[in-house]
Design a protein around this nucleic acid. Structure first.
Length: 476
RNA sequence: GCCGGUGUAGCUCAGGGGUAGAGCGCCUGACUGUGGAUCAGGAGGUCAUGGGUUCAAAUCCCAUCGCCGGUACCA
């Protein structure tokens, strides 16, 4: 016996079987609809980029260990993209004649060689939208409004988009007397507030601690009074954005630059009020920091109120310096990124995503080799009428197995046509779902057979109308 | 990285030194023109891998690997 290869996938990778792809495509189509309404344009970039492009300028390469490296025959240093923002920055720098603002969306897989966890994979899909070349806070407003419209279109139930800004956080550093160079560390720790709670955040900001698994966690080394000031800042919590703004002004009175930074989040808030995005959907939440170092202005993220355990499903912010790596010139940019897989998992959890297993609405069964021409004709007749139809091409001869096939793929209507039907110039249409429901009440097979639940005979000439009618009934 | 758990049929798992098990699923038939239920039959396993102990190892011991969970990191 020949050796066979074990069918398997490398860790962190998974297949998307048809039912998962159908749910995902519905979701992506819905989101795309929102952004095309907003006038964003699509962009595609390769999965593979030069490593120095991924890591930033060759000079200041940060160590980025979770990049998958790739080899080409020329032995160049290549890697798989880990997000869609860096390729966007490259495109902006490379195609100087692109009109700006450049407002694009992109839905593509990205790769990270991290340890996989529940709902975390090494290959996953992001849906990104960004406005490049706009300094105005209206661009940030538009991103937040788009996040709201997307979540509404997906019918996720309640959601909350929370935003703050790096400018506010930098003002906090000044207020608390924390050196600016500790900013990135402080923000990274603050970003964990929701997850680990205030006590651990305080420990991590000061001395560090040893976690439950015995792992030491380094502290940032702040003084207790500095953390007190951070906590005073974090105590400003209100569902009313106006209230947060006014308390911020009070707290930061006299701190240099505070008026400007508070002004930015206030303007965003006012635009959103004017557009009908009220406090129940968007809040100014000062605990939002975002872990990434490259944000420079407003930052935002969205959570689902009915599925908070899925965490942030949509997040982003302003990053005015990213394109600088390539151009040496500051290009303002703001955008958001959605974790397609995470949001889809949440939608499935909330039973908001479709349960469809097949695209076909009708299965034409194939019972009599002498009638092939009729089967083919009926199949195309339905297809040309816009009804997704599959002609059974497998080897099973009797209707039993073919109906089982329809059942397994969740095809809602089966069409039966043999010599009986041919003679009477009819077709038999079977509503598979009605039969399934009826089966629950019948214990005896003979009854089940005699009754032929969900079945209807219609004139052959009325095929298309009858199928439409039955689909209408099924989909009410 | 670190800590813990766990690997036995396609899936979920039981068993515990001496013949490899169940449920579900799958296939066949009862029922060659009707899915579900029922009944009867069938296919399917290197008990993760390598080594050790033993007359004998799926079972005990050691190592490795995989998977699961927690934790850290995440531009």
């Amino acid at each position: 016996m020949a050796d066979t290869v074990e069918p398997r996938l490398s860790r962190g990778l998974r297949d998307l079987l048809p039912d998962q792809m159908l749910a995902r495509q519905w979701m992506i189509d819905t989101i795309r609809g929102v952004y095309e309404l907003y006038g964003f344009v699509p962009l595609g970039t390769p999965a593979i980029e030069y490593l120095d492009v991924l890591r930033g300028s060759a000079a200041g390469a940060e160590t980025q260990q979770s990049i998958f490296t790739v080899q080409n025959p020329e032995k160049e240093q290549l890697g798989l993209r880990f997000d869609l923002t860096v390729p966007l920055a490259r495109v902006i720098a490379q195609y100087r004649d692109l009109p700006r603002p450049f407002r694009r969306y992109q839905v593509s897989p990205v790769w990270r060689a991290d340890k996989p966890g529940p709902g975390r994979f090494r290959e996953f899909t992001q849906f990104d939208l960004d406005s490049v070349g706009v300094e105005s806070e209206i661009a940030d407003t538009e991103i937040i409004a788009g996040m709201c419209d997307t979540l509404s279109a997906l019918r996720v139930g309640g959601y909350r988009v929370r935003y703050s800004s790096r400018g506010i956080l930098n003002t906090l550093l000044a207020y608390a007397g924390i050196p600016a160079k500790l900013g990135a560390d402080v923000f990274r720790v603050l970003d964990k507030l929701d997850k680990v709670g205030p006590q651990k955040v305080r420990l991590e900001l000061t001395t560090g601690y040893v976690d439950s698994s015995g792992d030491p966690i380094a502290g940032v080394g702040l003084a207790s009074e500095q953390v007190d000031k951070i906590e005073r800042f974090l105590q400003i919590r209100s569902d009313d954005r106006r209230e947060v703004v006014s308390q911020l002004r009070e707290l930061f009175a006299g701190v240099e630059g505070a008026d400007t930074e508070v002004g930015v989040v206030e303007k965003i808030s006012n635009h959103l009020y004017a557009l009908g995005y009220e406090d129940d959907r968007v809040s100014l939440d000062l605990s939002i920091a975002r872990g990434l170092a490259y944000y420079t202005g407003p930052v935002f993220e969205a959570i689902l109120l009915d599925a908070p355990e899925f965490g942030s499903v949509f997040g982003g912010g302003r990053y005015d310096d990213l394109v600088m790596r390539f151009l040496g010139e500051k290009v303002p940019a703001t955008g958001a990124s959605m974790g397609v897989d995470r949001l889809l998992a949440a939608l499935i959890h909330l039973k908001r995503a479709g349960q469809q297993k097949s695209t076909a609405k009708v299965l034409i069964t194939n019972m009599d080799a002498g009638l092939h021409e009729d089967y083919i004709a009926m199949t195309w007749e339905l297809r040309r009428a816009g009804i997704p139809t599959e002609l059974y091409l497998g080897s099973a001869r009797g209707p039993g197995k073919q109906l089982k096939y329809a059942d397994q793929w969740g095809i809602p209507i089966a069409l039966l046509y043999g010599s009986n039907e041919k003679e009477k110039e009819i077709v038999t249409l079977k509503d598979m779902d009605a039969g399934r429901q009826r089966a629950e009440a019948l214990a005896n097979r003979q009854e089940w057979l005699d009754e032929r639940p969900g079945q209807r005979e219609v004139p052959r000439v009325d095929l298309v109308a009858a199928v439409r009618d039955m689909l209408g009934l099924i989909e009410h």
